[in-house]
């Protein structure tokens, strides 16, 4: 277990322990998109199995974050100004146009032999969601990647066939994107 964590730490951007009882997984690993295959290889060697792959669309999250930060900064400035007895400054509009939205891809790994759930996640640019496929490591990932491509439009380079899998064969939409409406 410790060896696995150490090996994952070599690849990952961050590895943190999670509270299993509250969250349902033990290890929260964030990797760069290009490293998902390396992480899969490490887990494969450790005898883990891939339970599922899925995505999360974080549309507007960056803007929300920036706005929240600006608000917090403004509140602090306002408070400071009030304390100093000065006229509180006007709140400047937050410019969110340059912010890039992201999508998250989540891999759930588990082991048959002991209870240790590893969640590997990575974020890709929402406008150009692309990351390598891991179906060479786990052939079972093939279908999960197809499904994720269907729902989110995330391209897994190296996956043999990303034509609509669960959706109708002429589907050109990705229903789980937050800006999709039927």
């Amino acid at each position: 277990m410790e060896e696995l964590v150490a090996r994952l730490e070599e690849i990952a951007a961050s590895v943190s322990r999670a509270d299993y009882d509250a969250k349902g997984y033990h290890l929260d690993v964030t990797v760069a998109p290009d490293d998902v295959e390396k992480a899969a290889l490490v887990l494969d060697e450790a005898g883990y199995t891939l339970e599922a792959i899925t995505g999360v669309d974080w549309l507007g999250e960056a803007a929300r974050k920036a706005e929240a930060e600006a608000k917090a900064a403004y509140a602090a400035a306002k408070k400071a100004a009030e304390e100093a007895g000065e006229e509180p400054p006007e709140m400047e509009p937050v410019d969110t146009s340059g912010l890039k939205d992201e999508m998250e891809i989540v891999y759930d790994y588990t082991s048959y032999s002991h209870l240790f759930r590893v969640m590997v996640r990575c974020r890709v640019d929402r406008d150009n969601p692309e990351l390598p496929s891991i179906h060479q490591v786990f052939p079972g990932a093939d279908w999960h990647e197809k499904e994720t491509h269907d729902f989110f439009g995330i391209v897994f380079t190296g996956n043999p066939d990303l034509s609509p899998f669960l959706l109708p064969e002429d589907a050109d939409y990705h229903p789980l994107r937050k800006d999709f409406s039927a």
């Binding site: 349902g24 339970e51 759930r117 969640m119």
Partner: peptide, 20 residues
């Protein structure tokens, strides 16, 4: 806010629910 994962043993195998 956060993500949660939970599994049960269904008649056909592991049924998992991931919530964000």
């Amino acid at each position: 806010p956060g993500d949660y994962y939970s599994v049960v043993e269904a008649a056909r195998g592991t049924f998992g629910v991931r919530l964000v």
